[in-house]
């Protein structure tokens, strides 16, 4: 799909939300039923044919309304006990190139550009790094910093890493029925 077509699709999606798509979001935002035919069970709950649900979900995947379908692990429970949010103050001219570089690294699971909040917060690039120990994550971030300095000299003015020490809530999206 061309960029124009996908943006047009996004526009029309925002303008005229598909009522069935919205009902599918509401019905599955806390999870899919754990039965042999979960899409059929969902269709039954929504009072529409199973094939309609499958086609609508496929369309939502194609439009990016659904990012993926699957399991969300508690990263602590599966052994990733060190979860570092690395944050970087990168020169505005280089931030997109550095962001694309970081996103390509195996240890980085999310990477975003966000606004600075001066004077409290000078960082404009956020990259999540998960590991099995803080030493492992610290070493990985130091290695990333070194490569950034080599490839984008002087673009990085400062950096920090914020470790999570407690999950306070992890329910995901909840829109009203």
């Amino acid at each position: 799909m061309s960029i124009e077509a996908s943006e047009a699709g996004l526009q029309s999606a925002a303008d005229t939300p598909d009522p069935l798509a919205r009902r599918i979001i509401v019905a599955t935002q806390s999870g899919l039923p754990l039965v042999a035919d979960p899409w059929g069970a969902l269709a039954h709950e929504l009072g529409v044919p199973g094939e309609t649900v499958l086609a609508t979900v496929a369309d939502m995947l194609a439009r990016g309304v659904i990012r993926r379908i699957g399991a969300v692990p508690n990263h602590y429970a599966i052994g990733f006990t060190a979860n570092g949010m690395s944050v970087w103050d990168i020169d505005d001219d280089a931030v997109d190139a550095v962001g694309r570089f970081l996103a390509g690294m195996k240890s980085v699971t999310h990477c975003y550009r966000r606004p600075r909040r001066l004077p409290q917060w000078p960082y404009n690039l956020f990259a999540m790094v998960h590991g099995r120990s803080r030493t492992e994550v610290d070493d990985e971030i130091a290695a990333l910093a070194q490569v950034i300095e080599t490839r984008f000299p002087a673009a990085c003015r400062s950096r920090d890493v914020l470790y999570s020490s407690r999950i306070l809530k992890k329910t995901g999206l909840r829109i009203a029925p």
Binding site: L10, A13, A14, D15, P17, A21, R22, I24, I25, T28, Q29, S30, G31, L32, L34, V57, M60, R63, G64, V65, I66, R67, R68, I69, G70, A71, V72, P73, N74, A77, I78, K170, T171, G172, L173, I175
Partner: peptide
């Protein structure tokens, strides 16, 4: 046992105006 926190579709609510 909360090893998984969720199983199902993951939504990008931005794509439907959220």
């Amino acid at each position: 046992t909360r090893v998984l926190t969720r199983f199902g579709p993951m939504f990008q609510i931005e794509r439907v105006g959220g």
